[in-house]
Design a binder for these strands. Structure first.
Lengths: 229, 229
DNA sequence: CGTGAGATTGAAGCATTTCAATCATGGTGG
DNA sequence: CCACCATGATTGAAATGCTTCAATCTCACG
């Protein structure tokens, strides 16, 4: 644990600043990873890995949002929306399994690809990196535990509100900009059911809808609303 | 509802029988861990950690089955049934968070407790152990992804059959021995719904029921059955 | 400014829950 | 060791929440 210097550099290929898993990492580790990564622009709607295929590297999201989903019978279940700073695909590599999910960009994205052997090398070579990844995995695991319970026990309306609030945080100042179908997939319900409840929320004045764009106006009241209707 | 910890002596077999996370680990790591662990008998029904509390160590299941669950409003959601060889509580420590779940023994169990600082020491000191834990976390993560999708997309009947088959594997030659309420919590449905479908499966001759005990007789047919009824 | 994908609404049908009531069981004290 | 009692299992019936299908509307984009 010699070099503890914190780094705040930009990706050599796409010029965006490192964030997420890259923060608080010794500079030598960052250098090692960035030397072998290729950063590219992925157009909105690009699939960059598929459920069932073998991973040959990991992806780091420099910029943009992507959906992580599983194909069910018929509709797809969206596991989560990942955004800048997140690392994707490391689990499948470490568990030595096929991708359990697919990934597709929701908007134009900058994604860095790091080949499998480089990633594994960095992992073995750097305790700091290894710890970081481990912590990340545990955090995700805790998160998913909560999602599972929520999914199993809350009504659709409560889940919609919950998702709405999460997305609102994720989009920050911008309005939520997602296909209804995707949002429904995230909630785990039928598209029509989602739309119907959104209409009610709009009527009540807690959200604003402009085309596909949604803006949460009253975060406090919206929660109570979910329990009543 | 009081915890019923009994015996205080170190488990005699702990140092000789390695399973689960302990396998394929350098002997020095195993020695290091087992030197500081205390193995105790926990009576059926003992709670040994609680949602929301801070972990001060991890538990290794030497023998027996425990349920890992979350309190919802009203009924509890069972995240999983853990059995011998599994390590519990490491995620909360590594993610540096409170326990996201509670744990209770389903039968008399031998549990080894390893203090937090010993665990962290072992982790930092042994790349092999660290890798092992990381891999375990990733495996669990993949698993939970599948559970989530299943939960969101399959009908209750399909989920019941799925759970039944998993439990059947877990119990091996023995009949499944779980409260209906717990099984329902695992499936994520109402107890009555579970019972009703179990009755149908019994009528059809695919399972046998003796009191609370359930034995799966025909694993193949049972799956088709789930889709029809 | 047309066209197709996506959003919305209505209505019918069904799966699941909930409430209520009864039955079985297994653990406990007499 | 047995009777008892409490906990858990089972069944019925009513209520409801959600999905599905079908039809119409609207928006974004070439």
């Amino acid at each position: 644990m010699a070099d503890k210097k914190i780094v705040q550099t930009a990706c050599p290929t796409c010029k965006t600043v490192y964030s997420g898993i890259y923060t608080e990492l010794p500079s030598q580790d960052v250098d090692m990873l960035s030397a072998h990564q290729s950063c590219e622009l992925y157009k909105k709607g690009s699939s960059f890995f598929h459920e069932g295929s073998r991973p040959n590297g990991i992806f780091f999201i420099h910029k943009g949002k992507v959906k992580i989903y599983k194909h069910g019978d018929g509709r797809e279940q969206i596991i989560k929306i990942a955004k800048e700073g997140e690392l994707l695909g490391y689990r499948a590599i470490l568990a030595d399994e096929q991708f359990p999910v697919s990934a597709k960009t929701l908007e134009d994205c900058h994604l860095c690809f790091i080949p499998k052997h480089i990633f594994l090398e960095a992992l073995l070579g750097s305790p700091a990196f290894s710890q970081k990844i481990l912590k990340e995995a545990c955090r995700e695991l805790d998160l998913m535990t909560g999602v599972l319970t929520h999914m199993a026990q809350k009504t659709v309306h409560e889940r919609i509100v919950h998702t709405l609030l999460e997305l609102s945080d994720m989009y920050g100042e911008n309005p939520i900009n997602l296909k209804r179908e995707d949002m429904a997939g995230l909630v785990g319900t039928a598209t029509e059911t989602l739309i119907r409840f959104l209409s009610q929320l709009k009527e009540a004045g807690w959200i604003e809808i402009q085309g596909r764009k949604i803006r949460v106006v009253n975060k406090v009241e919206i929660k109570k609303f979910a329990k009543i209707y």
